[in-house]
Design a binder for these strands. Sequence first.
DNA 1: TGTTCATATGAAATGCAAGTCATATAACCT
DNA 2: AGGTTATATGACTTGCATTTCATATGAACA
Lengths: 103, 103
Amino acid sequence: MKCKSYNLFFMNFANKTKLEIITLLRSGPLNVKTIARKIKEEQSAVSHNLKKLTDCHILDVKNLGKERVYSLNRDTVIPILKLVEKHVRKNCPKSCIKNAENN
Amino acid sequence: MKCKSYNLFFMNFANKTKLEIITLLRSGPLNVKTIARKIKEEQSAVSHNLKKLTDCHILDVKNLGKERVYSLNRDTVIPILKLVEKHVRKNCPKSCIKNAENN
DNA sequence: TGTTCATATGAAATGCAAGTCATATAACCT
DNA sequence: AGGTTATATGACTTGCATTTCATATGAACA
């Protein structure tokens, strides 16, 4: 069962680890190990998160030998992030924007 | 401190109650009591949720006598919801769309 | 086939957001 | 001022997502 509900979809953006993964993949596809190293999280934690992200089609996967390469569903994700960035710029004081970017 | 981070923003969409409030206010502003009645939640629970929604400027408030009337920040919210609806339509099997709509 | 590397999975522990309950505040009216 | 209605707030509890840890799967290659 995939994309059970909208709140399940948004849950993938409402969490530090997942959001870091999304942000990271914004600049290109990566395998699991690299993602884990870059965001400093355990491999298994990353895998669990990646599962949920792919379940909702926020990420795509491709097998490459023994690696699995994850990539962003840019069609959906980029526009959403841009909307939120715009929202924050418009509605939130400078200090908050800074905080957001440091996550 | 408002909009501390992006995941805080998305948290407002990643929860049944908040999402119901957002959906409800899509068709116009309402006071707290009415919201609580319509979504069948306790008034205090609704108030707690409304606070977070306004903190992130997803909702606006106006005082009207002893009532407080909450309204949607349509500029941000409507486009985001439309993007997600499109995403679900495109990526998720029919059964899932149904599930999503029943939440 | 056995070994290594890469990743996934399941169950149990942890953490934290959300809900609950009681109470406070605040506006309006008599 | 006192009463009533509307909403907010704080502390406590609960529910559930997330992490952790141990282990399984699976691909490549000798």
